[in-house]
């Protein structure tokens, strides 16, 4: 049993509920024990770094300071939170005056996708895949913060990453080749300049359809929300005008035969269940 600290972040307690449920589900199946960080705060997200540098370090650093008390890695499924933690680690070194709580720089923060793309996890996963996702063509959508800035994420192939593609391969799915893996969906502009987000999201959705994907897979709560909810008016391509969007943890759970997969999937706006039933995967 591997024990880790779990930082869910605000979205996983709300609109990204199925990401929380499926993350907990697959962690359980893979023998990862989760300990939710006690009294965690919001990471500050886009709004903190857009308005105040000190705040953008101090807010996430409070969580880092709580996390380093435990000698465990802290796994973060929300890539926006993860990115703020990485930025806060760098910010705390450059500006120790921004730290309001003792922090020695010992927290080990990992993005959930990177955590599961580990070689040892792959081996574990290989043994647990009970229902391979054969015949499912997926477009892996990494978005921005899973790869950029590379000096914070450590991802070497940030223009054409392949780790999620390999993870999908390990589940028996076929990852299609496409050019929009790391394009931006507009993220939090959805609240204020929805027009921009609709335009960017629909470009990504269209390109996934054109690449022949049955569905899109992501590990970002903002990307998922934008791609799943902004499909109205999507131009028809090969008879299709919508495309389901999964969290990678949902497909992991499905391939490992998790009992609650259907419940997670029922929370999507674009129904993914029909597609999976047609493919004989659910």
């Amino acid at each position: 049993m591997r024990e880790v600290t779990y930082y869910p972040g605000c979205s996983l307690h709300g609109t990204a509920r199925e990401y929380d449920e499926s993350f907990r589900g697959v962690s359980g199946l893979l023998g990862v024990g989760l300990h939710e960080l006690e009294d965690w705060t919001c990471c500050g997200s886009t709004s903190a770094h857009c308005t105040d540098e000190a705040l953008s370090v101090a807010l996430p650093a409070r969580n880092l300071s709580l996390a380093e008390k435990h000698e465990r890695e802290m796994v973060v499924p929300c890539v926006a939170c993860y990115s703020r933690f990485r930025a806060a680690e760098a910010g705390a070194k450059a500006h120790p005056e921004y730290l309001l709580f003792p922090y020695e720089g010992k927290a080990r923060v990992r993005y959930a996708l990177d955590f599961f793309c580990d070689a040892s996890m792959f081996a574990e996963l290989g043994a647990k895949v009970a229902r391979p996702l054969s015949g499912l063509k997926v477009a892996c959508y990494y978005g921005c913060l899973a790869v950029r800035p590379p000096e914070l994420t450590g991802v070497e192939r940030y223009e054409n990453p392949e780790h999620m593609d390999q993870l999908m391969g390990a589940l028996g799915a076929e990852a299609v080749s496409w050019s929009y893996k790391t394009d931006c969906c507009g993220a939090s502009l959805v609240m204020t300049r929805t027009d921009i987000v609709v335009k960017l999201s629909q470009m990504i959705l269209s390109m996934a359809l054109e690449a022949g994907a049955d569905c899109i897979v992501t590990g970002c709560t903002m990307c998922h929300a934008n791609l799943d909810t902004r499909q109205a008016g999507l131009p028809v391509r090969d008879g299709r005008s919508s495309i389901p969007v999964f969290y990678f943890t949902e497909l992991m759970g499905l391939a490992m035969g998790h009992r609650e997969a259907r419940k997670w999937l029922s929370r999507h706006v674009v129904d993914p269940i029909k597609l999976l039933e047609n493919k004989g995967l659910l």
């Binding site: 609109t15 965690w40 705060t41 500050g44 903190a48 939090s188």
Partner: peptide
């Protein structure tokens, strides 16, 4: 956009976390 950021941060200040 700047108004949204302010509202967002006011929410954190109030409850520590974002309640969507």
């Amino acid at each position: 956009i700047p108004v949204f950021h302010k509202v967002f941060l006011d929410s954190i200040r109030g409850t520590g976390r974002i309640h969507e």
